[in-house]
Design a protein around this nucleic acid. Structure first.
Lengths: 155, 155
DNA sequence: TTTGCGAGTTTCATTACAAAACTTATATGG
DNA sequence: CCATATAAGTTTTGTAATGAAACTCGCAAA
C-alpha cells in the first residue's frame, strides 16, 4: 500500500464517520445487535446520559441506521430497530471488537460469537483477495477504476 | 443473535473504542495506511487542528498503535509508523470504508483497493463461519467458553 | 548569523458531552 | 375517576473536548 496522494478526500471513510464517528455510536449499535430495542434498555445497559442517548438515537434514525416505531399495545413505548443499513455495520463492529480482544484486553473475551449452526466460533475478520487469500497492507494498493480487470466487486 | 444480557460489559469493544473512538482517529489511521509519516503531512492532508493532531498522535503512541522516531539525517523530522497493533486495524478500517461506500456515498469510490498480485478488487469484508460461510446477525449468537466445541479461533 | 522548517505548545473561543431535574403522554390500580 | 407509575424524552447547568491562530524551540541550510 504505497503512498497515494490522489483524491483521498473522496474516500467514503469520512462519510461513514459522519454517522459512526461519535462517542457511544458503536456501543449503542452493539446493544442493538444484542437485541435491545427501547430507550430505557439502552440507557440502563450503557449508563449513557439520557440527552446524549436521545441525540444519538435520533441521529441514527436520521441516517437510516435505525427505525423508530411506537408499539401498538403500549403507545408509550417506542422500538428502535436496526435497518439493513444498520445491520450492515456488523462486520465493522465485529472487526473492531476482535481487534480489542487481540490487542487491548488480551485473548479470551466473554461471551464469544459462534455460528448458530454448529456452535463454532466465527473466523477472524480479514481483508481477502477475490480468491480468498488473506491480505496484509503490503499485498494491496489503490487503483483507479480504469486499471481494474473487468469483474467489479467491493473496493 | 438473541438477547444476551450476561456481561456485555466484558466485551472488548469499549477497550477498542478507548483508542479508536475519538474523532479523527480513523482518518489519521487511513492516512498512515496510505504512507503518510510526518506531522505536517497529516496536518495538510486532513486539515486537522495542530493541537488535536499532536494530541491524537501522542495517544496513538501511548496505546502502541504508532511508533514515534526521529530521522537520523534530519533530526528535526519525526516519523510516525504503524506498529503491528496499528496495522491490525486494517480490516476494521476497510470494513467501515466499504460500509460508507455502499450505504453513504453510493457505489463507485475512488480509488479502490486491489490485490497487488492480480490487480483485482478485494472482497467485501464479512463475518464468516469457520468453514467460510457468510454469516448475518441471525446466523450467530453469543456463547460462553464452556459451550464451544474444542478448537478455538476468534470470537 | 539569520532565515526557514518541522514539530509541536499556548491561548482563547466554540462546541460537544454529561448529570440531574423537569415534562409530556400514556398506562394501571383502586 | 383520580393518584401514581412508566416510557421517552427535554431543559438546565456545568465540565470537557475541539478548533483557529499565534507562538516556541531545536535544528538545518545559506
Amino acid at each position: 500500500m504505497g503512498k497515494v496522494r490522489e483524491n483521498l478526500a473522496e474516500c467514503s471513510l469520512p462519510a461513514a464517520l459522519e454517522s459512526m464517528g461519535e462517542r457511544w455510536a458503536f456501543l449503542i449499535l452493539r446493544a442493538a445487535f444484542n437485541g435491545l430495542h427501547h430507550f430505557e434498555e439502552f440507557q440502563q445497559e450503557l449508563g449513557i446520559a439520557r440527552n446524549i442517548l436521545a441525540n444519538r438515537l435520533a441521529r441514527f434514525v436520521e441516517h437510516g441506521i435505525m427505525e423508530r416505531a411506537s408499539v401498538p399495545e403500549d403507545r408509550r413505548k417506542i422500538v428502535y430497530n436496526l435497518t439493513p443499513k444498520g445491520s450492515a455495520l456488523l462486520p465493522t463492529m465485529v472487526a473492531l471488537r476482535q481487534w480489542g480482544e487481540r490487542w487491548e484486553t488480551g485473548e479470551p473475551a466473554f461471551p464469544i460469537l459462534v455460528d448458530v449452526r454448529d456452535g463454532r466460533p466465527i473466523q477472524e475478520i480479514a481483508v481477502l483477495s477475490h480468491d480468498g487469500r488473506k491480505l496484509t497492507k503490503h499485498d494491496m494498493h489503490w487503483a483507479l477504476p480504469g486499471d481494474v480487470p473487468a469483474e467489479a466487486d467491493a473496493g
